[in-house]
Structure formats: structure tokens, C-alpha cells
Design a protein around this nucleic acid. Structure first.
Lengths: 218, 218, 218, 218
DNA sequence: GATGAATGAGCATTCATTCAT
DNA sequence: GATGAATGAATGCTCATTCAT
């Protein structure tokens, strides 16, 4: 079941199959509840082969986190043009983020839910990846401040808190839009963009942030 | 170890001791990694007694979620005066929220991390509790809209998304302020309030939301 | 199979049953080839109970070594009257030794064969026990030297070597007499006594060591 | 690691490399704890090749026993001149024995410790080799008896026991001198020769056996 | 001649759960 | 009301062994 049982393939290919199966299983069951038996079966290989290639459950999980984490940060990076103005960069980044998480729900579950529930080895791994996103947002806020001729006296702490809030809101909306049928990545991005850029106060006053004109329809 | 081994106490008391031990253990180890042995020992009772009172590991965990969930929602409700204006209500609610999560990190871990990583039985339980908070925020936004004479044509979907974003940001900041020494509940609340009410755009323009004058120093 | 499946017995009793089964299994299969399943079944209990009481395979094996080692050294000590002359003490000690090893072949196998084949934890344990026997013999040789008004200039090294040789010969004869039908403990002891006390040279000259008159027929 | 990975060598050579690796691994880890992976890696070949040449773990171990057993008996035979008087033969034999075991500790471990701890297939193999040594000693004792005009009424059983004792003492001293820094093969041989030929009784009386004058200084 | 790819079978260990007292 | 004694069922992991190339 799962992958078709094709015999004798090069190691690199098998390894990806195993990681696919592992991400799916870990994402749905959680780290502890997932059994190596289940993962091996889903990957269409025997358990010893999984151990031969990935060493241990811990290493396997770490490999999943790493792969999914890189895929996510790369997707966001690829979606953003650093020459754009700050709000446009944020808008593009959010769309890429929601798009990617929507297309890889198990990977997102591994990163967002499963990896953070378990002690140091994994939490550290995912914290590093998350730190990248937070840094990206932090930089955006700084850029926006400069663009607005804002005094750079925004305390680092304050900015860090804002970035945390924004990333947290994004993570939460990703789960929400995945779970709510009919919410597209674009809508999720628009909602968050409004919230983040205009703030509830402005929204209430009827002054939402308006999305930039698009060219491509990604 | 843990609770002092006092013999013969009324059921209700023993049960609370067990829940205390369970929340601590589940919060730190996670649902699957926590063993009934460990919980029983920490509670100072024998394992069969845990089963007699709480039936099974699943029921025990559910009881933890329920107790901690209620404690949190009640803390938030108690902190808010529904007669206040919307922004004041949100400000008070956030302070209560950050205060409570900071004071009950294990309980918060159970609700925010552990309960969501495991299948239906628990996710549903915690989702219900979370829905209460989201509903509270949703109502606040509606009130704010009315206060601002805003047309009530804000789509429900849109409002729901905003509430999700706000709650998600709050959850994220709770973890962040717990993990960052020197960040108080009040500071976390201020950061989020600024973010949510004024929005990044306004902040950049130097127009932050200003906290209402306080009376008590909770 | 093995012990009759009697339910609900006090821990101390069960523990001895487990040790009995373990000594038998380890003695016959060896440490690594013995499986905890086999031991548990032979003991008439479930595997988890073995782990509950004896912790791990390693600890179980160590417990076996300790129990059998103590039984052996105590048997030898009990057979010897330290007020007797040296040769009589050796004679008595050897008889007790061969007697005990003949009656507890599995225990002897554990001590003599199995425990020495495996790394530090076990080798050290059995070495300590063996050192006791060697010390006993060493002391006997010193006593004999004094009795014979021999200059006490026998180097410690030399005496240690002689004791090693004697103990080694005894160990070897124990295995031999166990494996050779018709060789009693007494005969084995006589053979070794002759060898050790008179030496091959004297034996060849027709001057064997003559066993002391016996009273009891142990 | 271990053997340099040289490609394409004749079978006989490869086989010896494998046996070298196997003896070392079995000698240090024991039969069960040694893994074919480890042996193959140490030999610098792939696992299937080990199986191609040596069939199975059991066969490989048997081959080790056989090779090391032959090497030992040949070393002893080569050290002895059967035309010498009995005590000289014994003295020479012991020196050869202690020399060889000191130079091949892993091989000796395989023969003395590892092979005897595991059921029939191996115990039989090593017993055969050991029987050769015992037979050699038995013959020596018979020769000595003849030289001493001793009546040949020494029961076979008795002689067998003496030979067992002597070989056992030798084995024990081999381990002891290997483990005790500063004890040479020659010293070990002298100690045992004294013990065996003069006996403790004579030693106590100050009448040790005196080693024959040497010519070569092997 | 030599190996990368693959597995069936087994093992130590743990855990949630239940009787009998 | 409370517990010591006991277990069925997994689970992570390893190993000897074999194909297909």
C-alpha cells in the first residue's frame, strides 16, 4: 500500500520515498504514536532498510523536519522580490507561505505541531527554521520603518515581539484555512495583510490596506 | 516525591492531586511519552487508584484538557468588563490571558501543544475551548465595528479570519514571552494590542494604539 | 513447563524462581543466546514481571553471578576448618568445591564459562569471587610454608602464580569430572591433591600424598 | 580500516584476511556479540564475499577455531624434542604454549573462552584440539613413569585426571600471565613446572624442580 | 570476482490495564 | 478506600542471510 512496490532502486530515491512516508505518518499521528513499522509499510520497504538508510526514529524525524523546513523557507524566499516595497514583500511572502502550507499539510503539521511537542533535539531544529522566518519579518518591519522615515528607535525587543505576533498569526491562519473549506491561500493572505498592516482600528474606520495590483495570478 | 503521601483523603481532593500530577507530566513530556506510572507516583497514589478514579489514560488527559481549558477561559472572562469599550475589553482580556498562561505553563502546554498533536478525541476538546476565545474576540470585533458605525457588511468569514489571526498571535506571544526572560505579561499584551489595533502601517507612521489609563495594577 | 504456574506469590519467592530459571538458561545457552522470553517461560511468569523485579538482562545476569558466586564461596568456606593443617584444609576445600560444582552445574557454567566471556560488567563481578578463592589458596600456601619452617622469601608473585595454577587445575577438573561419568567429587579432589601436594615428580617416585583419615563421609 | 582495501587478490589471501578479522572480532566480542558486518568491514571486504567464501557465521567461527587450534598445537609440537627426557619435554612444551598464547591473545580467547561457551558444534571442535594437548601430556606422564621404573599400574583414569589438571593449570596461567603485566612466558612456565613436577609439598621443603640448562634463549 | 540493495525473524524493553486481596 | 502482583500487546532496533547486477 502507499508506494507501489518497485524493487531495487537507487538509495537516493528510496530515501525520498521513506521521507515522504515518514512526513505523512508523523504529520498525522505525531512522533510518538507513529511506528516505524507503519512508516516502512507506507514507504513500501522493510523496516531494516529504513534503519539502514535513516539510522533511527529520531534521525528520521530530524530528517523530516529538515527537509520540510527547507522546502518551506525556500518557497517563501522564492516568492519574494527583495527589491519590492515592504508591504509588497510581506504580501508576497504570505501568499507563498499559505500556498506552501496548504499544499503540504503533513509537512506543515510536522513543523508546526509535532516537532514542537518534543524535547530539545527537535524543538531546536524547528526553532532554527522558524527563526529564519521571524528574521525575514523582522527585517521587513525595519525596512518599512525606514521607508516611512520612522525614527529607528523602535526597540529591538518591540520589533521582535511584533514579528512573533505576525508569524504566530500566520501559523494560526494556515491551520485555519487548511481546516476551513473554501478559504484559499490568497484569502488567508489578504486577511492577515489587512490585520497586520492596517490594524483592527483602521479596519473599523473603513481604511483597509489595499493589495497591490497583480500581474501574474499565482 | 511530589505530593506528600497522606493517607485517606476524600475522593475530590485525591482527584485534584492526580490531575495536578497529570497536567504537569503531560505538559512536560507530552501525551504519549507520559506514563501512568510516572503520574501515579507524582500524585503519591498507586496506579490502580488512578484507574479507579479516572478510568483510562485517555479520560485522564481529557479531564486535564477540560480543567485547564475552563481555568483559562474563566480567567479571561473574569478579567474583562463587558461594559467597557471594545479596545479596553481586548486589552484586559489579553492581559488576563498572558497572565494566566505565564502562571500555568504546564496547563498551557497541555492545551496549546500537547492536545493538538493527537487525534480527534483531544483535538475536538481543545478546539471547543479555543472556539470560546475566538468567539469572544469575534464579538469584540463586531462591537468595535458598531462603535465605529462601520457597516455590518464585514463578512462573517472575514471576521472569523481576523479573530483567528488575533488568537494565533496571542498564542504565539504567550510562548514567546514565556521563553524570553524579561518579557512580562503586560508587555506582551501591549505589543499585541499595538499590533492588532493600530496595525503595522499605523505604527510605522508613528500612530500607535495608546493603552487606557489603569486603575488597579493587576 | 518449568515451574508449575502458581499464581500470586510474594515477590521474594518469585525472584528466586526467576533466578533459578535464569541460571539454568544462561548456564546452558550463554548470556547472549539466552532470551528473556525463554527465561520468563521457564520461570513460569510473564516477561514484564521479570523486568519489574530484575530490571534488565544485564542486571539479571549480574544477580545470577552474585548468587551463584556467593553460594560457591560459602560452600567452600563451610567445608574447611581453619584450625586444621594446611594440607587438610586444602583437601577439605577441594572436596567442597568439587561437590558444589557437581551439584550445581549450571551455576558453575555461569561462573566459569559464561561470565568470563563478556565485557567488564560481568568479568569484574566474577573476578572478585574468583579472587576470594585464590586468596584462600594463597593463604594456605603461606601457612604450609610456615609449617614447614620455610623461609618466607617466596615472592608474592610466585605464590600468586602457584595459587592461580591450583585454582585453574581445580576448575579444569571440575569440568572434567562433571563430563566424565563415574568420577566423583572425592576422586577429583584426590587426583588434584596428589598433583598439587606431591607433584608429578614424587608421584613418579611412588611417593604420593596420602589423604588424611576421614571421620564424616560428606 | 583494518586491512587496507586492496582489490582483486587471490582467494586464499582474501580468506586469510577474513579469518584474521574474524578471530580478532570473535576473540574480543564473543561469538554472538560479533556481527558479520563488523568482521566484513574489518576484513576490508563486502559481506556477501564473506558468505561466498565461508558460508555462514557458524562455519566462519568453526574455521577460526580450526585454524587457531592447529596453530597452537603445531607451535607446541615444534617446541618439543621427543627425544628429550620427560621433564625437559614438558618444560619445552609449556614454554611454547605460553609463548604462543601470549603472542596470539585473540586466538587464545577464541579457543579458551569463546568456543567453549556455545553448544555442541564448537565445543566439540575445540575439545578435539584440547584432547591433543591432553594426550601429549598423558604420554609424557607415561614416559616419566617408565623412566622412573614406576609400575605401569597407574590407572588410566588417574593419569587422565593428572593430565587434565596440568592442562587446566596451564590454561589458567596463560590467562593470568596475559593479564598480569611483567609476567613472561618463561616465568609462567617455570611456575607451572615447579608446581607440576615438584608439587607444593616439595616446594615447601625447599626442593624445587630445577630447570634444565638452556642453550638458545628463545 | 565483488557488491549495493533488500528482508524475515527475533530480541530487549515498556506500557496501559486488570485482578485478588 | 487502596494496593501488590501480574500480563497482552506493542515498539524500536539488529542481525544473519540472500539476490540481482
Amino acid at each position: 500500500m502507499g508506494a507501489v512496490k518497485t524493487k531495487r532502486m537507487p538509495r537516493a530515491v528510496r530515501e525520498q520515498q521513506m521521507l515522504d512516508a515518514a512526513v505523512q505518518t508523523f504529520g498525522q499521528r505525531g512522533y510518538m504514536a507513529a511506528s516505524m513499522d507503519e512508516i516502512a509499510e507506507l514507504a513500501g520497504v522493510s523496516k531494516p532498510l529504513v534503519y539502514l538508510y535513516l539510522n533511527s526514529k529520531e534521525d528520521l524525524f530530524t530528517a523530516c523536519i529538515r527537509r520540510e523546513g527547507q522546502a518551506l523557507t525556500e518557497a517563501v524566499r522564492a516568492g519574494v522580490d527583495t527589491a519590492s516595497p515592504a508591504d509588497r514583500q510581506l504580501w508576497d511572502g504570505l501568499r507563498a507561505f499559505f500556498s506552501h502550507t496548504a499544499r503540504h499539510p503533513d509537512g506543515w503539521s510536522v513543523l508546526h505541531l509535532q516537532a514542537r511537542t518534543h524535547g530539545e533535539p527537535f524543538a531546536a531544529e524547528v526553532a532554527a527554521m522558524r527563526a529564519e522566518l521571524v528574521a525575514f519579518v523582522t527585517e521587513l518591519i525595519a525596512v518599512a520603518a525606514r521607508e516611512a522615515h520612522r525614527d529607528p528607535d523602535l526597540a529591538d525587543r518591540e520589533v521582535a515581539g511584533l514579528a512573533e505576533a505576525l508569524v504566530g498569526a500566520a501559523e494560526s491562519l494556515a491551520a485555519w484555512s487548511n481546516a476551513t473549506p473554501g478559504i484559499t491561500a490568497k484569502q488567508a493572505a489578504a486577511t492577515l495583510m489587512n490585520f497586520a498592516w492596517a490594524g483592527l482600528g483602521n479596519l473599523m474606520e473603513g481604511r483597509p490596506w489595499s493589495p497591490p495590483a497583480e500581474i501574474e495570478g499565482r
